[in-house]
């Protein structure tokens, strides 16, 4: 017993100070795709290189546009040219949460000379439910996790939030056993047919105001499961989403960021 206590004391504090201290993911980490403005539009990878259809290329000649949907992206890196030499690379930004699906689309156009240009993007920052949640609950948020058919990677990252390193309870965030004790649901998976009624009934048991956070590509867009006989094709088909957290899976800090965005404690613009 004494040995255990001494061992614990020797370990010291292992908990991260995120989000107060910004953390840098490792160099190898694959985060948000970045498109180099001014690069050659023609050198952007063909849309069909993406295994999940996150890339759309539209138009002909000078007025072409090219878009990457982060809600779909599985961050596999197939769109990167060998040696990362092309205009499209995966950067290390992981704070990618947004309130609306269109905010997760990175879009560029081609100018008259065939160079890559960026259209103006406005991110949605305020939200009524979030204001309401803050008015009622202040800075704390208790969530009911709903596995709506995930591959379990997102689920394991949610449980990692409770390990000594992330310890989200220090931020007033916790996961509760009953939907009746929850301020909202945090959903992983594309909503399978076999879980659809369980998802709806759990959501119905959460008292209002209630928040819905969609974690990972499957929840945000259907992901690799898509829409089929077995899968609804994303949480938005069943519940109204307040915040989407892209990733496959999003790393734990990206999930913390998403939850704090849902609470209005952090601004989605932090990433800009």
């Amino acid at each position: 017993m004494l040995g255990t206590i001494l061992r614990s004391l020797r370990a010291g504090v292992v908990t991260t100070r995120y989000p107060d201290d910004r953390t840098e993911p490792p160099l190898a980490f694959r985060g948000a795709p970045e498109i180099r403005l001014g690069g050659r539009f023609a050198e952007l990878p063909a849309a069909d290189v993406c295994p999940v259809g996150a890339i759309t290329a539209r138009g002909e000649g000078a007025r072409r546009s090219y878009a990457i949907d982060l809600a779909r992206c599985i961050f596999c890196g197939r769109c990167e040219a060998p040696g990362r030499k092309g205009p499209l690379t995966l950067g290390r930004d992981f704070e990618l949460s947004a309130r609306r699906r269109p905010d997760l689309v990175i879009e560029v156009t081609s100018d008259e000379e065939g160079a890559i240009a960026a259209p103006a993007v406005a991110l949605t920052t305020s939200d009524e439910v979030s204001a309401q949640i803050r008015a009622v609950l202040g800075r704390s948020l208790h969530l009911r996790h709903l596995d709506a058919g995930s591959c379990n990677a997102c689920d394991w990252e949610l449980s990692a939030l409770l390990n000594p390193v992330y310890d989200v309870r220090r931020l007033g965030i916790d996961f509760v056993a009953s939907p009746r004790h929850a301020d909202g649901v945090i959903v992983t998976g594309s909503v399978t047919r076999n879980l659809e009624s369980a998802v709806q009934r759990t959501w119905a048991a959460v008292p209002e105001p209630r928040i819905v956070i969609a974690i990972g590509a499957c929840a945000a867009s259907g992901g690799i499961a898509g829409r089929s006989y077995a899968s609804a094709g994303g949480v938005s088909e069943v519940l109204p989403i307040d915040v989407l957290v892209p990733g496959c899976p999003p790393r734990p800090e990206a999930i913390i960021f998403g939850i704090l965005v849902a609470l209005g404690r952090l601004d989605v613009r932090r990433r800009a």
């Binding site: 295994p51 999940v52 599985i74 596999c76 197939r78 596995d147 058919g149 995930s150 591959c151 379990n152 990677a153 997102c154 689920d155 394991w156 998976g189 594309s190 399978t192 047919r193 076999n194 879980l195 369980a198 992901g223 690799i224 499961a225 898509g226 089929s228 006989y229 077995a230 899968s231 496959c248 899976p249």
Partner: peptide, 28 residues
Amino acid sequence: YTHRGLEKRIEGMSAIDAFHVAERLCGV
């Protein structure tokens, strides 16, 4: 409950695209 129909989904995919689905049958 988490039957996602992935074996149907993967039919007709190219080998390389299908690999990314296979990698996501399970997280751990």
